[in-house]
Simulated assay, not measured.
Amino acid sequence: MGAALLSLSVTSCGEESASGTSTASSSVAATSSAPVTPAAAPCSKPPALPSSVPTFSAAPDKADAAGKTFVATVHTTCGDIVLELDGAKAPQTVASFRQLAEKAYWKDSPCHRLTTDGIYVLQCGDPTGSGSGNPGYGYGIENAPADGAYPAGSLAMARTQDPNSNGGQFFVVYEDSTIDPSTGGYSIFGHVTKGMDILAKIAKAGVSGGGADGPPAQPISILSVAVTEKKA
């Protein structure tokens, strides 16, 4: 990542993060009649980092995803996280995500960053685990919120200060966050439909070694990603 505290970014050869403050989400105390959400299952041991990482010469044609909706199932060492991808609002981002999933770009890659103070995200998508990896190409920002609001469950791209450095790293928001939009913001290209309990578990464990920004204390790695088009 190579970014300052609470800046959702990566180094110049990768992708970035963000900065800002968060808006606390309200909560309602559970009553005896309220349904109980099952606790996330225990995490398995993360695999070793991949010995080689594929790279690509260019981003795929955004027409591959334009106007379409996709469902992505991210199989992780802590359970499945299911995402809905919005190709109408972010066609280039979704086309890229789909291609990287199909090419097993994220196989055995760790989620390398958790932020817990001001913005609340888990950042993944770098097979090197360093925060500076990228798939060999970059592209511009799509569908960044003008007001800087990233609701819990949002799925967005990480990048460097270069607005055209979106690539393979992405983040999921586990608690309502506000990120300063003055730098251009971050491409929201979908949302979580299943697995928020897993994100809550990772967030609750905090950052490895303490602090508010760094590797999650509870390791979580992506094993594989499957993407299918959602039919009307």
Rank of each mutant, 00 (worst) to 15 (best):
T160G: 06
S52G: 05
A146P: 04
K62L: 03
A65Q: 03
F97W: 09
P38R: 08
G87Y: 00
A39T: 13
A88Y: 05
Q99M: 15
D80I: 10
V10R: 13
H191T: 11
G129D: 10
C43Q: 02
S109Y: 04
F70I: 06
D108N: 10
K62T: 00
V207E: 07
A90V: 03
D176M: 01
A144V: 08
V94D: 06
S132I: 05
A226M: 07
V225G: 00
H191G: 15
A72Q: 05
A34F: 14
K201L: 11
C124W: 06
P145R: 02
E16R: 13
P219S: 04
A149G: 14
I119S: 08
E229A: 01
G140Y: 00
E102D: 12
S57A: 15
A101Y: 05
I202C: 09
E16Q: 14
K89P: 05
P47R: 02
D197L: 06
S132L: 12
I81F: 07
L5D: 14
Y139D: 00
P50F: 01
C13T: 15
A203N: 15
D197R: 04
H75F: 09
A232D: 06
S109T: 07
V172P: 00
G2L: 15
A205E: 12
G209Y: 02
P42N: 12
L122Q: 03
V36M: 09
S51N: 09
E102R: 12
V71W: 01
P54M: 06
A217G: 10
Y174G: 10
L5I: 13
S221A: 15
F189T: 00
G214V: 01
M196E: 13
Q92R: 06
M1R: 13
A18M: 08
Q99G: 03
A65I: 02
T183I: 11
T228C: 02
E175I: 13
H191K: 09
A58C: 04
S177V: 05
S52T: 12
G14R: 10
E229P: 00
V207H: 04
D108L: 05
A3R: 14
V36G: 05
T77G: 08
K45P: 08
H75N: 09
E16F: 15
P42E: 10
V227C: 03
Y105K: 03
K107H: 10
S27D: 11
A205W: 05
T21R: 11
P46T: 07
A200T: 12
A156Y: 00
D176G: 00
A90M: 01
C78R: 02
S52Y: 08
K103C: 02
S187D: 04
E142H: 00
D80W: 04
F189D: 00
G136I: 11
L155C: 07
L6S: 11
V53F: 12
P135W: 08
P151T: 03
L122I: 10
V94F: 03
V28F: 13
H75V: 11
T23F: 12
P60S: 05
C43A: 07
G206N: 09
Y120R: 12
V28N: 12
G87E: 01
S165G: 08
T183W: 15
L122D: 08
V82M: 08
